[in-house]
């Protein structure tokens, strides 16, 4: 194993980690407000990728604006899905809301995946590059698309952190996650934030899908692994901690990349990548049962 290979794996790991973080932070946001783990989040990421693809290929929009269109579209779609499928769970008629929420999002995941096969076909599609070409760093070669995905992902994460900590809407979102009752007392309608959180989470996943598409291409089942990875990351970072899932996302991507580099049999390394992620999770949970940055969380009311 050469140093070059190690660096390439580290660079790839970082990009994948940032994409993971973008997906996972949405799952966290949704969990912290709705107290539901969204197992359809990877499928929203898939839809986001396809949406950007069709905006580019059908309307000739350049990739970057197409990503923003896709984010807006998924924001809207997610709000509709939330209103249709999850809002009814919050009515007084429903008991065992958490369990139903879990089943609903599982069902939604299968539904979206199969709709995608019908609508987009089973074959991989690849949109044009954001920026074509490669960059040379000494002996290392990194494609511009990876660099772009990594930097755009970082910008989006920073924008989210700014939104959460510096704007009244972000603070209100945080407030609802800490206490729905207290939020209502100050005049915030907590139910509006259910939809809002779902929309913001989906928009971030859509961005991740649009950014990853030119690198790995699109397929209807591309959301299956991210669904699991995102869940691993959210637990790793601590349920409900936005910063935790960002850090855990990047750490998981990076450790997967390096694991592949260090695995003795390179031909089989990739097959074990996901198992490695779960191994990391188990080790962390032994020492920190609340994850890396866990806040004490409240159950769904």
């Amino acid at each position: 194993m050469s140093w070059d290979y190690l660096f390439i794996q580290a660079a790839n790991g970082a990009v994948i980690g940032i994409i993971y973080a973008l997906i996972a932070v949405g799952v966290t946001l949704i969990f912290s407000i709705l107290k539901i783990v969204n197992f359809a989040h990877g499928d929203l990421y898939m839809l986001g990728g396809y949406c950007a693809y069709y905006v580019i290929t059908l309307f000739g929009v350049p990739p970057l604006p197409a990503m923003f269109v896709s984010m807006a579209a998924l924001f809207t779609i997610a709000i509709i899905l939330e209103r249709l499928l999850l809002t009814p769970l919050y009515s007084d008629a429903t008991e065992r809301k958490d369990e139903y929420g879990l089943i609903v999002t599982f069902g939604l995941a299968f539904f979206l995946r199969n709709i995608a096969i019908i609508a987009f076909g089973p074959f991989p599609l690849k949109p044009p590059s954001f920026i074509s070409g490669v960059q040379h760093f000494g002996n290392l070669i990194v494609t511009n698309d990876r660099l772009f995905a990594g930097s755009a992902g970082i910008v989006l994460i920073l924008a989210l952190l700014y939104f959460m900590h510096r704007t009244i809407w972000g603070q209100a979102l945080d407030a609802v996650s800490q206490s729905r009752e207290a939020a209502a007392i100050v005049g915030i309608n907590p139910r509006r934030f259910n939809s809002f959180a779902f929309g913001v989470g989906a928009a971030l996943a859509a961005a991740a899908g649009a950014l990853i598409a030119p690198i790995f291409s699109l397929a209807p089942d591309m959301g299956v692994l991210p669904n699991i990875q995102a869940y691993v990351i959210v637990i790793l970072g601590g349920m409900g901690s936005v910063l935790g899932s960002i850090i855990a996302g990047i750490a998981l991507g990076e450790s997967e990349g390096l694991f592949t580099a260090f695995f003795p049999d390179p031909t089989r390394a990739l097959a074990y990548t996901n198992a490695f992620g779960v191994l990391v999770l188990m080790i962390v949970l032994i020492f920190r049962p609340n994850g890396l940055f866990g806040r004490r969380h409240l159950r769904m009311e």
Partner: peptide, 13 residues
């Protein structure tokens, strides 16, 4: 109150 937010943000909310 919102325990993880600052006193000022609590007031603003």
């Amino acid at each position: 109150i919102f325990p993880h937010l600052s006193v000022e943000v609590n007031l603003r909310l």
